[in-house]
Simulated assay, not measured.
Amino acid sequence: MKKRYIFISLIVICIVMFIITSFCSFFKVEGDSMNPTLVNNDVVYVRKTKSFKQGDLIAFNYNNKLLVRRVIALEGDKVNIDQNGYIFVNDKKLEENYIQSRKDNPLRDEIFPYTVSQGHIFVLGDHRTHAIDSRMRDLGAIDQNQIVGKVVLRVYPVIRFSVL
């Protein structure tokens, strides 16, 4: 009888692990590009999806690394950044209460206004001074094929657990 419970428990664990790895992933955040929303060594839960909206946090592959950035604009949107660091999408100013400073990254080399290409998403880091994001031509707007999914939870450290 005990062997049967162990066998059933192992089957249930395997099924749960299959479901978790098929539809979501856990990743460790490296760096401070998303500070203060996410900080170095936070662990996040990423739901695999291809449906995003402005303000979502997404995880995507870039140069053999997984990066997390915030969706600012979708395909066809026009993005502009003024001298004070305010972001405008389709001529509407974004309310960005998640950033601490609007100071620009000195490596920015993209020309604005910028229209997001078909099949791409324009992303920015929350720590604008240090984030490598769509303001840099090397990264640019993210091809939707590079996107792993939407960051939905911070699971570690446990005291900072939150829905994102």
Rank of each mutant, 00 (worst) to 15 (best):
F7D: 01
D91K: 15
R108S: 13
Y45P: 00
R4L: 14
I147N: 07
V89C: 04
I159V: 13
Y156C: 03
P113W: 10
R128D: 02
A141S: 15
R160Y: 12
V155Q: 03
L10Y: 05
L67K: 08
G119W: 06
D143W: 10
Q100N: 15
R70T: 09
N97R: 10
K53Q: 14
D82L: 08
F60S: 04
R128W: 06
V89Q: 02
C14K: 02
C24Y: 11
Q146L: 14
M136A: 09
T37S: 14
A59M: 12
S9N: 07
H130M: 12
F88M: 06
T21P: 00
F122H: 08
Y98T: 09
V43L: 04
V79A: 09
I20D: 01
T21A: 03
I8N: 01
D56Q: 03
R160M: 11
N145F: 08
Y86S: 10
T49E: 02
K2Q: 11
V158C: 01
V68S: 02
N61M: 11
D138K: 15
D77S: 12
V43Y: 14
F7T: 11
I11D: 01
K53G: 09
H127F: 14
R160V: 00
N63L: 14
D77P: 07
R4I: 15
S117H: 12
E96V: 07
S51C: 05
D138C: 02
V12T: 12
F18L: 14
K93V: 10
E96L: 06
S22N: 13
Q118D: 12
F112G: 01
